[in-house]
């Protein structure tokens, strides 16, 4: 086994699995191009081949040298201490990964589940809005329940969840809660500074992007969020 660890095998397995998936999917667009004999697949398949070679080379490196930094790499490579931070925070065990990926499923659940329920119930009009609000509320509840157990996982999830909700609930309604959420997850727990900073950041963004640059930000599709967003835009512009 040389200096190989389970993590190295998982890493190699992920890369090779990705290569296999991309190669199989490339048959979906294997079509001839009259003026180009290599077709649409030659370039991506060349990349896949190189990725496979690099993944195997990386596995060989791990087998021979473990986690050692390569000699040919400029030392600048190691300036990024993300790996060390992960090690120090004990975020390398399978339990932490499982919990993090569990949290990361929440935004994707919001992107899919309300549509399934709407289709199942053949809902229309305000019922659709209600279903989306209820789904969002339940998923926010689940997120809050689990976030205390894995703060870093929660920080990874919160922006994605914010982005998933953006289309329905709009930037103007969500941004204040998002600001408070990020501050809380970064360890700020004093309510007064949190409220003051939230008002400052939100006010500055509104002034710069809405009042001065007239950037159209998403107002949302669901009542009452759409009304709130439209009201903010009307007042500022």
């Amino acid at each position: 086994m040389g200096k190989l660890r389970t993590g190295h095998l998982v890493e190699a397995g992920l890369w090779l699995g990705l290569c296999l998936f991309l190669y199989i999917y490339s048959f979906e667009f294997e079509k001839d191009i009259e003026i180009y004999k290599f077709g649409a697949t030659a370039w991506p398949r060349a990349i896949i081949l190189l990725m496979t070679i690099a993944a195997l080379g990386q596995l060989f490196h791990h087998w021979k040298r473990g986690d050692e930094v390569s000699s040919e790499i400029i030392d600048a490579a190691t300036h990024d201490d993300a790996e060390e931070a992960a090690h120090d925070a004990h975020h390398e065990d399978i339990k932490w990964y499982a919990s993090t990926f569990g949290l990361l499923l929440i935004p994707f659940a919001y992107m899919r589940i309300p549509d399934w329920i709407v289709a199942l119930l053949s809902a229309e009009g305000t019922t659709v809005h209600l279903i989306r609000i209820v789904c969002a509320a339940i998923l926010i509840g689940i997120f809050i329940y689990y976030m205390r157990r894995n703060m870093v996982g929660a920080i990874l999830t919160l922006p994605l969840f914010f982005a998933a909700l953006l289309e329905d609930m709009g930037f103007y309604s969500l941004a204040p809660f998002f600001i408070i959420g990020v501050m809380f997850l970064f360890g700020e727990q004093r309510p007064k500074p949190m409220m003051a900073i939230m008002a400052l950041i939100f006010g500055l963004l509104m002034l710069l992007f809405v009042k001065i640059l007239f950037v159209g930000l998403p107002v949302g599709n669901i009542h009452p969020f759409y009304d709130i967003g439209s009201w903010v835009v009307t007042v500022l512009q």
Binding site: I33, G57, Q58, A77
Partner: peptide, 29 residues
């Protein structure tokens, strides 16, 4: 040879970028 921990990881990083650039319409056909 810049930015990653090993030469192989450097290449894998570049190749994943090249692969992302493949998504969409092919430039010839």
């Amino acid at each position: 040879s810049v930015g990653a921990k090993t030469f192989w990881k450097g290449w894998l990083s570049i190749l994943i970028g090249l692969m992302v650039a493949v998504v969409g319409l092919d430039p010839v056909g």
